[in-house]
Write a protein that binds this DNA or RNA. Sequence first.
DNA 1: AATGAATGAGAGTTCATTCAT
DNA 2: CATGAATGAACTCTCATTCAT
Lengths: 235, 235, 235, 235
Amino acid sequence: MSFSKPHRSDKALVPARHERRKDARPGELAAAALDLFVEKGFAATRAEEVARRAGVSKGTLFLYFNSKEELFKAVVRENISGGFSQWNAEFEAFDGSTPDMLRHCMTLWWQRQGNTKVSGITKLMLGEGKNFPELALFYQQEVIQPAHLLIRRILQRGVDRGEFAPLNMKYAVFAVLAPMIFLQLLMHSDTACYDPAEASELVPEEYLASQLQIILAGLCLRPASPLTKKGTPCL
Amino acid sequence: MSFSKPHRSDKALVPARHERRKDARPGELAAAALDLFVEKGFAATRAEEVARRAGVSKGTLFLYFNSKEELFKAVVRENISGGFSQWNAEFEAFDGSTPDMLRHCMTLWWQRQGNTKVSGITKLMLGEGKNFPELALFYQQEVIQPAHLLIRRILQRGVDRGEFAPLNMKYAVFAVLAPMIFLQLLMHSDTACYDPAEASELVPEEYLASQLQIILAGLCLRPASPLTKKGTPCL
Amino acid sequence: MSFSKPHRSDKALVPARHERRKDARPGELAAAALDLFVEKGFAATRAEEVARRAGVSKGTLFLYFNSKEELFKAVVRENISGGFSQWNAEFEAFDGSTPDMLRHCMTLWWQRQGNTKVSGITKLMLGEGKNFPELALFYQQEVIQPAHLLIRRILQRGVDRGEFAPLNMKYAVFAVLAPMIFLQLLMHSDTACYDPAEASELVPEEYLASQLQIILAGLCLRPASPLTKKGTPCL
Amino acid sequence: MSFSKPHRSDKALVPARHERRKDARPGELAAAALDLFVEKGFAATRAEEVARRAGVSKGTLFLYFNSKEELFKAVVRENISGGFSQWNAEFEAFDGSTPDMLRHCMTLWWQRQGNTKVSGITKLMLGEGKNFPELALFYQQEVIQPAHLLIRRILQRGVDRGEFAPLNMKYAVFAVLAPMIFLQLLMHSDTACYDPAEASELVPEEYLASQLQIILAGLCLRPASPLTKKGTPCL
DNA sequence: AATGAATGAGAGTTCATTCAT
DNA sequence: CATGAATGAACTCTCATTCAT
């Protein structure tokens, strides 16, 4: 660390105004893109508008991102997949009970992502993924899989520590994910799908808590329930 | 009669090909449009492809529908809003308990619509509604409002017959709707959002049953629960 | 004449209803076409609308006229060029002075054509002729040339009878035609070009009379006037 | 300085090709559009052809003008309505007699506009105005009204200075305008309406002069003439 | 590095004309 | 004869992407 080349670190310490702009550009563009992708979707967002909102010209956008799809990937990396190392670190560091961990994660997730523009990306992928196979694949690898893995690790921890009964993992992961996805959709479905007045009746934090309670209730030895596939001893 | 040569008078019974096509066209086009709208979304579906899939030329499509938006409206009318009169008739005719009615409706809905291409329309509106305000308004009026009304009538019946406790209707309606919407989304989110293998773990019928059970459990006098807003005596 | 074949003449005497329609069709179509051509121009008039206004289907129109251009030609023939034989006959029969003849012709023309939908055809050709060379040629041959010829004959009669001085014919013909054309344009220039209130100030009959008076005043030996090209002894 | 190599600082003086084009484009496009509108009319002129004639691609046209109608408006502004401030300034500055002013204006108008492609716009509006109501309205406001106002001011000046008798303004304005409009039509009616050979017989300058003479003759107290409506004391 | 003018493939839509019935 | 369903070329306008400056 202390032996890094001087030039780069000089710049890092006292960047010229011009330089600072330059370094900031990709982030500013990705931020503008996030806004617009969430607002209009991927296909309906025009590259020029992203650039304008970031205060640069259309050409500059393509200077930093080779295509609209690359821009989208950057948005995902910066806002979602980039966070998994922290999530995983937090997982390692946590030392309470697994039900507490699950509750804690859910709360953090809600604050960091669910209750944020970022949740619009989930909705976007749901709606447009099929039309942009490369993005779908990217999202699978960068978001879906790490997320599933993380949840799986949490659940497995509960099983390993004897807090949870043995689980049909695929199903259990999904049970955790479902209410999160649903909430994200709800948050971005203004006039299109619900009378906003009615949609706003649902208090997200309470909804998450109740769903979590139900899930946790299912994470112990019980006879078959409607939530359980025939034959699976437990969630 | 059955062995007579085809007369002109048979025309009424077996319309000439020319005429039969004419009557069939709108339906064929709407069917092709449903397929493609569900597959690609509204904006990404090209009019010409709808026509081609219906076996006609681009011009023919516009012979029957003045615009792509009108085509979409026809798809909605034909597949969703047109069915509300039947739903309402069935509501009137039913004479079991209201919990039974709710279960019955859910089952029927799943067979008729949820477990069908039609459910893709819900997803489509969720994703693209904001970009097509006229369609969003149409969908609100033709689908959302009648659906909400129907559910509300069912719940109110339960209250009126003393089966359910007094309800905060807006919230209760939404509680019924939420799992239905979620399922529809799930069904049309192939590679985009979940490892299909995992998504398929969820058995829709069981999911619906379990959600219904939870809802029904909430439909009687109880103290405040996480599902209940502060102060509301019941779901 | 008396020996003509019976079949055709039977039909001519007592045409079946069906037949009568059939014979009337071309005229009805041409009449509808005249209305619409005058109202919207040639290019902007849709074949289907002509058919609808004539109470037949689009296909029927093309049964009687091979193309929109042929339809236009029929309109011209029926309403303009077909009248030249009568004009010429009247020319032969007239036996007053030539100035009187000119006045008489102008008046008749105003009643028969100028003050009529037909005048819209002149405007139409002026505006769209260049875009439809075949129609332009047809109109030249069927309308412009006969009209010029007729006027020329009238003027020549005046010269021959010693009523007019020798004329530079091309120019003189044009002097007669100009106010007629101008009036026709004015009649079909609603809101597009003049405040209708103002345009209506001009009384066509008086305008024609005054122009005629000026022209007639020019039809005798005089020194060069502004209306005369340098060197031409007279109009 | 004149022999120095081109520096960057020369840029302001001799803008780079790239930039010069940008400033020039709208004008080039409007010029090409003027040519084609006059040649073929508004509806029959294809956007792509305008672009091609201006040496750019279809997309470039719409970079500068939001629609074909906006392009037309720009043509009108650039070639006609933009000139009214100069006309009005010249009106203020002129200090000869009003008949002289009228003659002078007519001459200038002929040089600047009548004897120019621009006169084709008048013909175009006459022919197509009804089919493009928004353009008709624009033309009314930007051309017809200012033109009428200007002529009215000239005539009123004559009245105020005692050179002309009191006038029925609406009618008088129109008397001045009529020959101007007629000439413009004539100039753009090649093969469509007249044997070009014949049309060319009319010498525009002489035609204008003669018409002006007639009008001026009418601008003094006289008993009713054919040019005067019954009851109006003067033109 | 940054610009923004330029491109051109394609989208929805229109309409004269054809032809099976 | 009459129909009107069907066609497909043509039109205006959009936008991701390129590239000269």
